[in-house]
Design a protein around this nucleic acid. Structure first.
Length: 450
RNA sequence: GCUAAAUAGCUCAGUUGGUUAGAGCACCUGACUGUUAAUCAGGGGGUCGUAGGUUCGAGUCCUACUUUGGGCGCCA
């Protein structure tokens, strides 16, 4: 049995050969004495046209095979240089393997994403979602390849944790429904992780360069296009690396992934470019070929916003976070990704390294068009006394993080890391503007079906 | 919390409240010798989101609720 991806890869060598294909019917255009089937076999984004005629014994049956049905086709591979498609299959035998009912909801027409969200198990059979999830898979592979080539060690940090996620958002409790934490499964309150960072930092003190790539969970009641309750993050951590090294690594990684999907998924990317976001490929190429991403301090970014002449709903302030409208202004002003670094310490996490001014920390956010904050990173506070002071200021329960502080007690060093939101990356790469459409079965507040 | 919407399986019309609820696609039947979101003719398919209310009369107006989209904050 042949695979469609191989037929497309080397058309000429299959000319006039007999082939066997199996897959799912996308469209069936039956006429009086012949008909055409669009067949997807899952191995490539493209479909193949199968031509069948009334010489086949089950011609009438074939005419009535509906969308979604699985079939097996034996036939001859024929090059068609004058047609829309490079080749087609002239069927000698078409066997219905799995029938599809009259009520199959996916039609050969445009569907709204809202409707398809109700059918996450069927929407992957559409062009859009087939392309999205192939990009998702390829981008994940690109990330592992990138880090592997650089000698990073891939660390699997725990999903269940007793660390109550200092400052990184609301947590989901994990429980066997015991009323008393002491008699519950772990004998204490435990949660789904909101980040792998605290757990991976100690690994950087042993392997030097490490990364995690796994799910994170946040019980925030956020209902936006770029927030989900369950999402995946890539969190590298590098010993003997400062904030500049961190930003360099982010930039190199983002460019590598863009280059990888443009090279390896041309069909999917062309589809997004024509049907999802016109100019997507140009936009990504501009990022890929840019000499360096813009780097601007938080202070200078606020100045820029203040002097922009734009009347923002939220007034930009030196000590405060950037609003979404500010992020959008910055990415469109610089027409591409922007690093904002040296953030006010009071709006950032306790582990970020205090700068000499005593006011800011060595943190950087990468803002991109489409996804907003794609990456959040920082140089970590490696000085034991400064870190403990900061934890005191924030009234943190030091006992539960004593193990983490050990990394500063025993051979601590300058180190940095970041978290890259995988779904936001996919949105950035595809132009799909809702996080619910780049996760297989998205979980958001009030929505955990399937 | 703000805002918009909910009519056939899907996408949508439906006039200042007025007879029997409309189209395209999908499905079924038929026509068609190269279609490619095929085309053409015909057919079946509706508790107009739910519950109240106003009215002689409600898909249409009012109230509440549910669900969905968009926006804001949180962040990745």
């Amino acid at each position: 049995m042949e695979l469609l991806k191989d037929l497309f890869k080397d058309c000429k060598s299959y000319a006039d050969k007999d082939v066997v294909l199996s897959g799912w019917l996308r469209n069936n255009r039956a006429q009086k004495e012949f008909g055409f089937i669009d067949l997807s076999d899952g191995t490539t984004f493209k479909t193949v046209q199968v031509v069948y005629d009334c010489n086949l014994a089950n011609f009438t049956e074939i005419q009535h095979i509906r969308c979604g049905a699985s079939i097996c086709v034996k036939g001859k591979f024929v090059l068609t240089p004058d047609a829309k498609q490079p080749f087609e299959i002239h069927a000698e035998e078409v066997v219905l393997l799995g029938d599809s009912g009259e009520d199959y909801p996916i039609q050969p027409k445009r569907h709204t994403r809202e409707f398809l969200r109700e059918l996450p198990h069927l929407r992957v059979r559409t062009n859009l979602f087939n392309a999205v999830f192939r990009i998702r898979s390829e981008a994940a592979f690109a990330i592992h390849t990138f880090f592997h080539e650089k000698g990073f060690t891939y660390v699997h940090t725990p999903i269940i944790t007793s660390n109550d996620g200092e400052g990184a958002g609301q947590l989901f409790s994990v429980t066997t429904a015991s009323k008393n934490p002491q008699t519950d499964f772990f004998g204490k309150n435990v949660f789904l992780t909101v980040t792998g960072q605290l757990h991976v930092e100690p690994y950087a003190m042993a392997f030097r360069n490490v990364y995690t790539f796994g799910p994170a969970f946040r019980a925030e009641n956020s209902n936006t296009q770029k927030h989900a309750s369950e999402f995946w993050m890539i969190e590298p951590e590098m010993a003997f690396a400062d904030l500049n090294d961190e930003m360099n690594m982010v930039e190199e990684l983002v460019k590598y992934i863009i280059g990888y999907v443009l090279k390896n998924c041309p069909n999917e990317m062309a589809f997004f470019d024509s049907f999802v976001e016109k100019g997507l490929i140009d936009r990504l190429n501009a990022v890929l070929n840019s000499k360096s991403f813009v780097r601007i301090t938080h202070h200078d970014a606020i100045d820029l916003l203040k002097n922009s002449g734009v009347k923002f709903e939220n007034t930009p302030k030196y000590g405060e976070d950037l609003a979404t409208e500010h992020e959008k202004y910055l990415t469109s002003h610089f027409n591409g990704p922007v690093f904002v670094y040296n953030w006010p310490k009071d709006i950032k996490a306790f582990y970020m390294r205090l700068n000499d001014d005593g006011e800011t920390v060595a943190a950087s956010d990468l803002l991109v068009p489409e996804s907003g904050e794609l990456v959040g990173g920082s140089q970590r506070e490696e000085r034991l006394d400064v870190l403990l002071n900061r934890m005191n200021e924030l009234h943190m329960k030091k006992e539960t993080l004593d193990w983490y502080v050990d990394t500063r007690r025993y051979g601590g060093c300058v180190h940095s890391g970041f978290g890259l939101g995988f779904e936001r990356l996919i949105m950035f790469l595809t132009g799909v503007d809702n996080i619910r459409d780049v996760e297989s079965y998205p979980r958001t507040p009030n929505n955990c079906d399937f």
